[in-house]
Structure formats: structure tokens, C-alpha cells
């Protein structure tokens, strides 16, 4: 295989694998936050804050994967 092909495949693999975990975890976070709000609607604002924060942290993993993919692609 040429270097270019390997590079493309590596980029693809990085972004594919790197987005699986954040996708699952964001779904998990959202569902549990909805559960929590449903159980205790008065705490909605607190739950929301924690939810957005953890969703952002989970999403950060996907972003690191994106950055890594870009680095593999261009460097």
C-alpha cells in the first residue's frame, strides 16, 4: 500500500473509532439526565448544568479524535 492510502485509512479509522465512545456516552448521559429530571423535576436546572458539562467532556473525546485525524491526514 502507498503511504497516502494508509494515511487515508488511518484517518478514517481514527474518526470512526474515536466517535463511537462519545456517541454512546452522550446518549447515556442524556437518558440518565432525563431520568433524573423525570424523577425530581425541581432539580432540573442542576441536572441540566451537570448534563451539559459531562456531555461536553464526552464530546471532547470526539474532538480529540478529530484533531488526531486531522494531524494524521495533514502531517
Amino acid at each position: 500500500m502507498e503511504t497516502e492510502t494508509v494515511r487515508l485509512l488511518a484517518t478514517m479509522g481514527t474518526i470512526i473509532i474515536g466517535t463511537i465512545a462519545p456517541a454512546v456516552s452522550i446518549g447515556w448521559i442524556g437518558s440518565h439526565a432525563a431520568d433524573a429530571i423525570g424523577r425530581n423535576p425541581e432539580a432540573a436546572s442542576k441536572v441540566q448544568t451537570a448534563m451539559i458539562l459531562s456531555a461536553a467532556f464526552a464530546e471532547a473525546i470526539a474532538i480529540y479524535a478529530l484533531v488526531t485525524a486531522l494531524i494524521i491526514k495533514f502531517v
Partner: peptide, 13 residues
Amino acid sequence: GARMISFSFRLFG
């Protein structure tokens, strides 16, 4: 530093 990266790439992405 990671915050800066994730902030910027999240929005950009």
C-alpha cells in the same frame, strides 16, 4: 490547554 482545543474544535467542527 485541552479546554482551548476542545472549545475551538467543538464549535468549528
